[in-house]
Amino acid sequence: MLASCSKDSDNEWLRMALPKSASTDGEQLFGLWLGAWIAVGVTFLIVFTLIIWSSIRYRRRSDDYVPVQVRYHLPIEMLYTVAPVIAVAAFFFHTVEVQNDITEESKNPDHVITVVGQKWAWTFDYMGEDAVNGKDVFDAGAPDDIADLYLPVGESVRFELRSPDVIHSFWIPEFYRKLDVVPGEENSFEVTPDREGTFKGRCAELCGMYHSRMLFNVHVVSPEEYDAHLRELEADGNVGAPMGGAESHTIKGLEEAEEEAS
């Protein structure tokens, strides 16, 4: 309780403990999150009040008194059925509405970055329009040297998620979104960062012994700083598809297993 009184977290009460958003999707996702909590709170109050009220109102007051036993009460049974269906339908409608909006991808995003999650580090391959002198450049990390992901503020970025080994999950808390990185599957999503800063990213799927070390830094910078970083990667020799990226479309060990089975 004392820790929650910190001046650094005074705004977290208003955000329901969520971090301050750093993407254009934040407002919609926070609205869905807040609405769900309000609905849950109202449901809890109604159910809890009915439990307390019925326990007091219909309690057994003496050995000679037995409360009236109600069976096959059609109006109540209909209420028990209809009310939850209406509540779930409302939750479902708003969830699908927000989901369809934020998962819609543009045909030509400003940037395309291939994200490779491998045991136990991240690799970020800057492709297409971000190629330097016609060559892709990349940031690669290791469990003891986490990778850096650079993003330009105010410009759309599509993350293409790949894994050569097991299921990982690409998560940047300030974007209010995460998505599984599944071997053999080409998952992707698109965001537009709207606030400069340095944030922490991580794997949100238990993927093995060093899962806790699958971290990365996210730097949302100006477009000029973003371009300068890509040129630095070229100067450092981080050019071409890294090993993780080259193997990210296959499942590790699958070909050997098929050969042994045949």
Rank of each mutant, 00 (worst) to 15 (best):
D10R: 11
S54Q: 03
T103F: 15
Q99F: 14
M78Y: 05
A22M: 07
F44S: 08
F30L: 13
W33M: 06
W37L: 09
L50T: 10
L32D: 08
T81A: 15
A89Q: 06
D8H: 13
R59D: 02
V66I: 12
L14P: 00
P67R: 00
T24F: 00
V98Q: 00
N108F: 10
S106L: 05
V96M: 10
N108K: 10
R15K: 05
F48D: 15
Q69I: 06
I46Q: 01
G41Y: 11
G26H: 10
D63R: 06
I56K: 01
N100G: 11
A90T: 10
F93A: 14
A87Q: 15
P75H: 04
V66M: 04
L74E: 12
F92M: 07
L14N: 07
E12P: 00
D10L: 11
V68E: 12
F48S: 15
Y58F: 03
Y72I: 07
R60N: 01
Y80S: 13
N108W: 11
V70I: 12
S106R: 03
P19S: 03
K20M: 11
L29N: 07
K107L: 13
S62R: 00
W53R: 09
P75E: 06
W13I: 12
S23G: 00
I56Q: 01
D110W: 01
L32S: 05
E27F: 11
P19M: 03
C5V: 06
M78N: 05
K20R: 12
Y80E: 06
D101K: 15
N11L: 11
P84E: 08
S54P: 01
A36M: 08
K7E: 13
C5D: 10
P109G: 04
E104P: 07
I102G: 02
A87D: 05
G35Q: 06
P75A: 04
R61D: 09
K7P: 02
P19Q: 04
T49L: 08
V85G: 07
V66A: 03
N108E: 14
N100V: 05
D64T: 10
L34N: 10
P19A: 04
N108P: 08
V82P: 03
V82M: 09
P19V: 01
D8P: 07
R15G: 06
W53N: 05
A87S: 15
G31D: 12
L34R: 11
E27P: 03
D64Q: 07
M78K: 07
Y58M: 00
S23T: 01
I56G: 00
A22V: 08
E27W: 08
W13M: 08
G35R: 09
N100C: 04
Y72K: 14
L50S: 02
I76A: 11
A87N: 13
